[in-house]
Design a protein around this nucleic acid. Structure first.
Length: 289
DNA sequence: CGCTTTTGACCTGCGC
DNA sequence: GCGCAGGTCAAAAGCG
């Protein structure tokens, strides 16, 4: 399991971009499940993003990143520029949430039952991506504890739920295997780490672009992959301040993440991403939510 | 002994 | 309102 970096095989550049996002996102339920989305036909013809354009600095193996989530509510236009929609329900009063969550967590832990604190369960920003790997649980520099596993409808593979073991960090991730291609692991991160990676990448892991990718990944809890990984934004971009800079939600990208960003400042991809997101996300979309 | 994983039960939201 | 599916909890088991 610790051999992820070495053992995983990765998607070839030809691997199709697919629109994938969390079907469980509130307010935007999709008729298709996560894995079903993976099976979207004809995905090769209409990549959502020109990844080479997106990650010009990652010459050999640019992570493919896809804005996803709610944007796909848009009337079936797989090739329309998909936009992440940072939905506000995910971030509404997130600033407050940081404090409240701790309380809530304590409450819910003790009482377990009263779960109806807010009408809608608050969702953290999500970020999904696919990786071709033999192992389900990819090493991403953080420590995770599995807290659940569920069978997924229409998929022979179960979905596993992990939580960051850091007590103050409420980042979660879901891991499931594509039933269309069992060699592909789909990982969805939810939330942002509030602490540096305990297993931060070593400076000499590989090429500079690799370090960048890893650093970027680690900042958001993404696996350290050597090669092709497909990223999908959920609701928000992982690099929070982009939207807030655009005045989308007014705030809440948590400072912890920004801090991490700095920790990972070697990641040029971050900067690229940042800029790209701004290009990608039309302001009207941001306002809509 | 402490931490992680497993697993069944329970909760919640959504579509019909 | 009901049923389904996703998500979470927590006790028990497993492991180092």
């Amino acid at each position: 399991m610790e051999d992820v970096l070495g053992n995983s095989s990765f998607l070839a550049n030809s691997f199709p971009l697919q629109s994938i996002f969390d079907s469980s996102c509130e307010g935007d339920k999709f008729p298709l499940g996560f894995m079903e989305l993976l099976g979207v036909q004809d995905f090769t013809s209409t990549p959502l993003f020109d990844t080479t354009h997106q990650f010009p600095s990652l010459e050999t193996d640019p992570p493919m990143k896809i804005e996803s989530p709610d944007a796909f509510n848009l009337p079936a236009t797989p090739n329309s520029s998909s936009i992440s929609s940072a939905s506000s329900d995910a971030v509404n009063d997130e600033a407050v949430k940081v404090d409240e969550q701790e309380e809530d967590q304590q409450k819910t832990k003790k009482q377990l039952k009263p779960k109806k604190i807010n009408q809608k369960r608050q969702r953290e920003p999500r970020f999904a991506f696919m990786t071709k790997s033999e192992v389900d649980h990819l090493e991403d520099g953080y420590r995770w504890r599995k807290y659940g596993q569920k069978a997924v409808k229409n998929s022979p593979f179960p979905r596993s739920y992990y939580r960051c073991t850091s007590s103050s960090c409420n980042v979660k991730k879901r891991v499931e295997r594509s039933f269309t291609d069992p060699s592909i692991v789909v990982t969805t991160y939810e939330g942002q780490h509030t602490h540096p990676s305990p297993l931060m990448p070593r400076p000499s892991l590989g090429g500079s672009h690799l370090n960048s990718a890893i650093a970027a990944g680690a900042a958001f809890g993404m696996p350290m992959q050597r090669s092709q990984t497909h990223y999908y934004h959920h609701r928000q971009h992982p690099f929070g301040n982009t939207l807030s800079a655009l005045g989308h939600d007014g705030s809440s990208i948590n400072a912890g993440f920004l801090h991490e960003r700095r920790l990972c400042s070697s990641g040029q991809s971050l900067l690229k991403d940042h800029g790209l997101l701004q290009d990608i996300i039309p302001s009207h979309m941001l306002k809509e939510e």
